[in-house]
Computed example of a mutant assay.
Amino acid sequence: MNLLVMGAAGGTGAHLVAQALAAGHHVTALARHPERITTRHERLRVLRADALDRATIDAALPGHTAVLSALGATTRARTEVYSQGTANLRRSMTAAGVRRLVCLSSGALDPGTGTPPAQRLVTRLIIQPLHRHAYADMRRMEDDLATADHLDWTVVRAPMLTDGPHTGTYRYTHDEDHPLDKPTKISRADLADFVLDHLDDQAVFRSRVAISY
């Protein structure tokens, strides 16, 4: 495939790029600071782009099979990087005729009934208030995507992310009536593994996926 990775200089973005190249895909890596992407490969193109500047996305997007968004807020201040950044991706994708979009979100938005009570309490009283601006913007992004019937979108809600190894072993569900039992953490490498392994999986199209070890 010809894959476009937005936020490619971040932790998960770097894994998406590396694993996509290892799988034989062609990759366009977009980042506000492309100099931070040190990988070099004949199937890799690195470009400077800003998710909040649609013109930079418009210039890069035509000809791609799918868009993988690893956008993330770098501070706890108010942000629109998830909602507006993804809205810009959506508009550019529509103009370019690209349908497949995968975005990353957080399992802390709505801890399911499979989450232990103590963990739900910590999430509600500490984690959510601490990251309230990012989570509010993630929710806006998710709500906007829910109306995007013209896209084959997937939102992956991850728990705590780690720099652990790439194992290829994890649990996931896209059935909101049957949430994951005791979601804890997942490595960025395995989060990238899931995204790339399910690009063609129509079962997760237009759905929110919860993932964890």
Results as ranks from 00 to 15, higher is better:
Arg48Ala: 14
His64Leu: 02
Ala66His: 08
Val46Tyr: 13
Gly63Cys: 07
Arg100Val: 02
Arg45Leu: 00
Ile57Met: 11
Arg91Val: 10
Gly97Glu: 09
Leu89Met: 12
Gly63Asp: 09
Arg76Leu: 03
Val67Asn: 12
Glu42Phe: 05
Thr39Glu: 09
Leu101Thr: 02
Thr79His: 11
Leu44Lys: 04
Ala96Glu: 00
Ala51Tyr: 04
Thr38Trp: 01
Glu80Leu: 10
Ser69Ala: 11
Thr56Gln: 08
Asp53Asn: 08
Glu42Gly: 06
Ser92Tyr: 14
Ala66Asp: 11
Leu44Ser: 03
Leu52Lys: 07
Ala77Ile: 12
Ala60Asp: 05
Ala49Trp: 02
Leu44Glu: 04
Leu47Asn: 10
Asp53Thr: 07
Arg54Phe: 08
Met93Cys: 09
Arg48Asp: 08
Leu71Pro: 11
Arg43Leu: 00
Ala51Lys: 01
Arg54Lys: 07
Arg43Met: 03
Thr74Tyr: 01
Leu71Cys: 12
Ala77Leu: 15
Val98Phe: 07
Val46Ser: 00
Thr65Trp: 06
Thr86Ser: 12
Ile37Gln: 15
Thr39Arg: 05
Arg43Asp: 10
Thr75Leu: 02
Thr39Gln: 01
Arg54Val: 14
His64Arg: 13
Gly63His: 13
Arg90Met: 07
Leu61Gly: 01
Ser69Gln: 13
His41Asn: 10
Glu80Ala: 14
Arg100Trp: 02
Arg48Pro: 03
Thr56Leu: 06
Ala70Asp: 06
Thr56His: 01
Thr75Ala: 02
Asp50Tyr: 04
Arg40Val: 12
Val46Lys: 06
Leu44Arg: 10
Ser83Lys: 09
Ala66Ser: 13
Leu89Gly: 09
Ala60Gly: 12
Asn88Ile: 00
Thr75Gly: 03
Ala51Asn: 00
Arg78Val: 12
Gly97Arg: 04
Ala55Ile: 07
Val67Ile: 06
Ser92Arg: 15
Arg99Leu: 01
Leu71Val: 09
Arg100Gly: 00
Val81Ile: 14
Arg45Ile: 08
Ala55Lys: 08
Arg48His: 12
Ser69Arg: 02
Arg78Tyr: 15
Val46Ile: 15
Leu101Ile: 05
Arg54His: 02
Met93Thr: 06
Leu101Asn: 13
Asp50Glu: 10
His64Gln: 05
Val102Ser: 07
Thr74Ala: 01
Leu47Arg: 14
Gly72Trp: 06
Asn88Cys: 07
Leu47Ile: 13
Arg76Ala: 04
Asp53Glu: 09
Gly72Gln: 00
Ala66Gln: 13
Arg91Trp: 03
Ala73Phe: 03
Asp50Ile: 00
Arg40Phe: 00
Ala73Leu: 05
Ala55Cys: 06
Ala87Cys: 04
Leu89Glu: 10
Thr86Ile: 10
Val98Ser: 09
Ser69Ile: 04
Val102His: 06
Ser92Asn: 14
